[in-house]
Design a protein around this nucleic acid. Sequence first.
RNA 1: GGAGGGGUGGCUGAGUGGUCUAAAGCGGCGGUUUGCUAAACCGCUGUACGGGAUUAAAGCCUGUACCGAGGGUUCGAAUCCCUCCCCCUCCGCCA
Length: 426
Amino acid sequence: MLDIKLIREKPDFVRQRLATRGRGDEARIADIAVLDEQRRKLISEGDNLKAERNTVSKQIGALKSKGEDASVQMAAMKQVGERITALDAEVATLDAKLQDILLMIPNLPHEGVAVGKEAADNPEVKHWGDAPKFAFQPKAHWDIGEQLGILDFARAAKISGSGFILYKGAGARLERALINFLLDLHTSEHGYTEVFPPFLINRNAMIGTGQLPKFEEDMYRLRDEEMYLAPTAEVPVANIHRDEILREEQLPIYYCAYTPCFRREAGAAGKQTRGMIRVHQFDKVEMIKFVKPENSYEELEKMLANAEHVLQLLGLHYRVVLLCTGEVGFASAKTYDIEVWAPGQNAYLEVSSCSNCEDFQARRANIRFKGSDGKNRFVHILNGSGTALARLYVALLETYQQADGTVKIPEPLVPYMGGLREIRPA
RNA sequence: GGAGGGGUGGCUGAGUGGUCUAAAGCGGCGGUUUGCUAAACCGCUGUACGGGAUUAAAGCCUGUACCGAGGGUUCGAAUCCCUCCCCCUCCGCCA
């Protein structure tokens, strides 16, 4: 959520930054200004009446305790009370309207982010390694996986529908190996504290990180309760400190967490639905940081390096792009995407997204810290995939496939695979 | 799921309709004393949103709201009523 004071004081700046996203959000700024103005006027009027009522009510108490008559004052205050009730109701209505708009307005892109419209406008910031060369035509992961008997999309569809994955044998082991490898890496080498959060999330938490109210249709929701399936560990983990005031010396806080991620992918039908590149349930290890505002961009670079380290250890070719203003996510001010090379697709696949949301989520979730000056300030919250597993799995199968159809296991995963060095047909 | 008991400031905890402007203690901050430390003593103490003076910020002056959340009763609610959430105890169920 944007700071209403910023909108009040620098509306043109806010409008200009929002306009770079190209979604027309800046059009709502004028509405906000009007509602804010009305709201403050009514609050002021109501507060004055409340002050009067408080004073007179005390006088009534004093009169009554002396046994004197206070019926004139009581009648007058009844009138005042009715006016207060009416004003409070108007303020509540305005508040609700203001919140409705504010909760739907995205974060301001950082000023260093390139203005652009679509993925093609995302500048590439770096790349690592080279695309592997094959002496044969590299296969797609769905063929490799089915021939090895480790992936079964047809049976997953029988259980759930399209967009779900059934891993089997060494394939299931590989998924579990990756989860453990990633958690071990981030906890023992990158300084993150492992957390294991709930996967069912209440509405307030979903609002806190920005999934709701705007992206309701992308979320899976329970029928009988207002609970949502976690779309990413960012939601439960960033909400750990909701409504808290942290001590300055606690910061920065680094958490990492494994969760499955559930996404309806509404409107995505027809777009690359084969295999496991876009699915309704995938595993992910996520990194989340709570940091002081003055450090947040350094922390973003460190987080990006932590995510890159995963791909480097696994020997996978990748590139890093900086999302342009039109592509930056709703809550984020600046986002790096890491795209891993998938030879069977002849394409880069997004496996990590590292974002600095600055105080956008902290304001929604009310997460502050008390500075050395005694002032409470909102923390900056960062999140980054470290990494998404389904697409990482794709890159592993397609990169390490051999001419005979087997798949080699990269060295760091071998201990997690119980010593297995390659996956052969079952 | 059922019955009962709870939820008050950073923490403990008093408060059953009117100086509650929330007692007291602990902690924290500042000060006095002191060779230093400790103790003792004195003072201060939360959050949010408005209004005012000010070039602006800080600070200041002033008001309102906040005792789990939301409604209600009343001139006046931490206190009474209703709904919901969470915690504790016991019962039931269950991995």
